[in-house]
Design a protein around this nucleic acid. Structure first.
Lengths: 140, 140
DNA sequence: ATATACCCGACTAAAATAGTCAAGTATTAC
DNA sequence: GTAATACTTGACTATTTTAGTCGGGTATAT
């Protein structure tokens, strides 16, 4: 069970941006250098963040990306949803009528995974970008 | 973010076993049929469960596997640890001195992932096999 | 004996991941 | 007005992980 780099980088990059004054465009190049993330990969990630209304872009020289809302109002769950279709999943689909493993009944552990889904989502629902900056000052 | 089938099948298979009287060997063939999991794959999974002292094997005809302890005393966290090295992980290793992304300092979100690790582990720590059977009777 | 059922290492197809590449377009600074 | 910066987009690809399969065992009950 692990998190993919896309989600991780997205959170890292946005946390990085949160440290700058809002409305001050931050270029991906700078984020790439500070956080050691491939620029080309960041571009891919930010397109998704943009589509999902988390950031907006400022084109041209001295441009970059800007948070669309205050970091306090950007929940981690939104970020995950933006870059990684689903926050967590098991084979048996939550809403499928067919049940699990091709059987017509729910598998024996079905409810467990549903519960886990909700549990993990809860973690991300209750954390926002500004929470990440609270923990003592860093220098990177 | 998703769970692999190995972990899922392990929990399913053990939950299946829990429904039978303890000390009554349950064959993988039967579990395979009831839960629609490949027999050969189950064998692989049970070798790990055996190595990790969760089940013991009874060889020969009429043999099978037996839970080593009461389902009440088998935590889901143990099962996960047995089949899937780590319960959850991000690129930056929890105990590495080197920090994340090759830098000498911890990445900006390092503490978040640690917290998430603990949070998820907590879920599995507080659930045991018999908890799975509590939820209303099933017929598969 | 023979059938059942565990044992174990090696192998493999398919999918997902983690990027890269090429060829743009928009805007600002000079 | 032109160079430089920086976002835009779709396609492509190497690597890794996943989800198994295969073959050839060994132990035991009947």
């Amino acid at each position: 069970m692990k998190l993919n780099t896309k989600s991780r980088y997205a959170v890292m990059a946005l946390a990085d941006m949160s440290k700058f004054p809002i409305n001050n465009p931050v270029s991906l190049r700078d984020i790439s250098l500070r956080q050691s993330i491939s620029l080309l990969y960041l571009e891919q990630i930010f397109l998704k963040l943009k589509k999902n209304e988390i950031v907006k872009s400022v084109r041209g020289s001295n441009g970059g990306y800007v948070l669309k809302r205050d970091p306090k109002n950007i929940k981690l769950s939104e970020i995950f949803q933006a870059v990684d279709q689903k926050v967590k999943t098991v084979g048996c689909k939550k809403d499928s009528k067919k049940g699990c493993n091709g059987k017509s009944v729910k598998c024996i552990t079905h409810e467990l995974w549903d519960e886990l889904d909700i549990y993990i989502n809860n973690f991300f629902e209750n954390k926002n970008l500004s929470d990440l900056l609270m923990t003592k000052e860093r220098k990177n």
